[in-house]
Design a protein around this nucleic acid. Sequence first.
DNA 1: GATGAATGAGATTTCATTCAT
DNA 2: CATGAATGAAATCTCATTCAT
Lengths: 172, 172, 172, 172
Amino acid sequence: MDKKTIILKVALELFSERGYAATSTRMISKQAAVSEGLIFRHYQNKDGLLKALYAEGISKIEELYEPMLKLEHPKVFLKQVLSIPFLIKEDNFPIWRFFYNQQWYDPQLYRLTTKLLSDRVCDSFRLLDYKDPETETETFFVLLEGIITNVLLTKYNLTFAVVENTIRKFNL
Amino acid sequence: MDKKTIILKVALELFSERGYAATSTRMISKQAAVSEGLIFRHYQNKDGLLKALYAEGISKIEELYEPMLKLEHPKVFLKQVLSIPFLIKEDNFPIWRFFYNQQWYDPQLYRLTTKLLSDRVCDSFRLLDYKDPETETETFFVLLEGIITNVLLTKYNLTFAVVENTIRKFNL
Amino acid sequence: MDKKTIILKVALELFSERGYAATSTRMISKQAAVSEGLIFRHYQNKDGLLKALYAEGISKIEELYEPMLKLEHPKVFLKQVLSIPFLIKEDNFPIWRFFYNQQWYDPQLYRLTTKLLSDRVCDSFRLLDYKDPETETETFFVLLEGIITNVLLTKYNLTFAVVENTIRKFNL
Amino acid sequence: MDKKTIILKVALELFSERGYAATSTRMISKQAAVSEGLIFRHYQNKDGLLKALYAEGISKIEELYEPMLKLEHPKVFLKQVLSIPFLIKEDNFPIWRFFYNQQWYDPQLYRLTTKLLSDRVCDSFRLLDYKDPETETETFFVLLEGIITNVLLTKYNLTFAVVENTIRKFNL
DNA sequence: GATGAATGAGATTTCATTCAT
DNA sequence: CATGAATGAAATCTCATTCAT
């Protein structure tokens, strides 16, 4: 892994755990074992790291969603969406934690992870003949966010039983 | 309102919106129209503000829960709990936002707002003859956190329909 | 003891142990259990404490020297002067320590404790027919300062044997 | 001389003359013509300057003592030790002044400059058949400290006659 | 590409001092 | 006489960023 990549990886880890504002470029350079100057050569400024991570995160999310969006059966699709928290592999954990944590300060991150799915989710509920698919979709996402937040804050200390219970509540 | 109180109020507003790390004591002093030194005279250090807000937040939460915990009927109680997001009055909004935002950095804040209710919620599901009240409770809280987070991030831009839908899903 | 006196006493203790610059008026007020404002009411400013202590110290020294200066026999007088370190009673210890420590920053304090005696010491050596009484006096005071410094820094951890040995070296 | 070295040199000069507590990092940076931040980059904190100076001072002292400790004849050796105040060259003056001044606040500095010599001094008195070499050594060091203090406080305004007189008193 | 010295602005904190009560 | 709130300046320290090498 080249130094540019290491810097971004370390920045992500620190932003994810401590938050953007509480992480200094010095900390990043120390933990990445590179000079502080190199961060600025590669990413211009601290905000550049943020932007690079936004881009990386979005592509990681799209990658994760790609096979999911190919599922045709609505119930199968919705169940898969609810399983997202358990699909976040260990090496993608930091970027999700970073996004969820960062949305408290950056409105453009709000619901970024779910809005790529919202149309398909709404369609699925419509196909399943739910009478108010919009409200159903909204409820679905609110719950999903609760689950994801929980997983990110407790580092996977959440039983799958909760997801199964949710699946039942949505008759999936 | 005396200056000590104003400082804490302003600190809360700023911490709530921008986060603790991104808020300088200088910003607080400017917005509170006091000298920067006064912050330290009253709260020792920046962390002292945090601790004072923790204490204040906890007592505000207990205040909010007090009448709720007196509700005897389990369904009534659970429905009331699900309505918490709409019970958070405007002047308590900042402390809730601060707590939910801060839990990303401070493990001691995790679930602090819900653990005061968890036993009663579990008992309620047991009284209602749910077969796995523990999982039901967990699902309930995960969903509640999703709703509260949503309300705090969008400033109440959430229809009550979602709550009603949830109530239906839990047969309340 | 009234508050004005307590303040000065506490200031002396702290200045004596930590030095003037490293002692804040806040520390003094805390340890004296008075308000910080009271220090300024009684002594105008921090420098006022210094000046008050200078005056007190000088009068304490004169008090100590008074009986000594009445000794007529030169040898008896000189031996008594060499015993000064052991005449400094516990409650006068802080003011001596303060003076000796403070002389590193304030030239007017240099030799202040000994210059009141220097003429009499020189006369004594002259009476005893020392051939160079000025150099003898200087040597005598240098040694005395060494002994006093030692006593002040080690809190009396100095054997009287050293003083006796010195007395012998000066044929007293 | 690089900036790191200049900072330490200036810090020494100021600490030596005004004392540690009364010297601000701002003063150091101004006089060293560097940014204040650089002090912290090179020495972590103000205390880091202190520690660096301790290390430097100890090595300077050892340097000064090295040739002295090679002197075999006890009288020659002791006379040389008594001449230390006149061996402190102008550029080592600040570090000695700093050490002697600082020992009033830092117990670990007490007698640091003499303890490296104490065994050899005691041995010398024993070789010269003094009956109580320990007391003789103690007296010798007390006097030496008096002389050094005097030199440091008056900037060499001390006649060599005092040292010669002392040598006579110890029969050297 | 990479370093590490260097900076100026700003963050946190402490300080002596004032003032209304 | 005495308090304690309040201040403005300064002290210590951190930060993002630049630049010569």
